[in-house]
């Protein structure tokens, strides 16, 4: 999953947005998939290949981090970083602007 090279203003994919939100609580891959499905009321089903790629990109970017698991724990657990949280916040501001303008111009409380 490619992310925009512009960290500040680029839109996140909805997958990445929900992955970041999920990782406010430490989780492993399968847990993230389940949680994203739950959050989006079954609408967003992350493919395992897509999620795997997104997780490695997000770790590279420093938006999430790998938790040092126990020796015997085979499943990798991830958690959001402070940088990741600030990315989510600026995304929320961006989404807010989109919604506000939509409501203002098109009207209706969608």
């Amino acid at each position: 999953m490619a992310l925009s090279s512009n960290n500040e203003y680029g839109a996140l994919t909805e997958g990445v947005y929900y992955i970041l939100l999920s990782l406010l609580t430490p989780m492993h891959g399968y847990g993230i998939m389940q949680n994203v499905k739950l959050l989006s009321h079954q609408r967003v089903e992350l493919g395992a290949g897509t999620l795997y790629g997104a997780l490695s990109t997000l770790v590279e970017r420093g938006w999430i981090e790998l938790l040092a698991g126990g020796e015997d724990s085979r499943k990798k657990e991830y958690q959001i970083t402070e940088l990741g949280k600030s990315i989510v916040r600026s995304e929320m501001t961006r989404l807010d602007e989109l919604l506000t303008n939509g409501r203002k111009l098109l009207g209706g409380e969608a």
Binding site: A2, G15, G47, A48, G53
Partner: peptide, 9 residues
């Protein structure tokens, strides 16, 4: 069951 769920991947 899908392996890739978004356009980029």
């Amino acid at each position: 069951f899908q392996i890739y769920s978004d356009t980029d991947s």
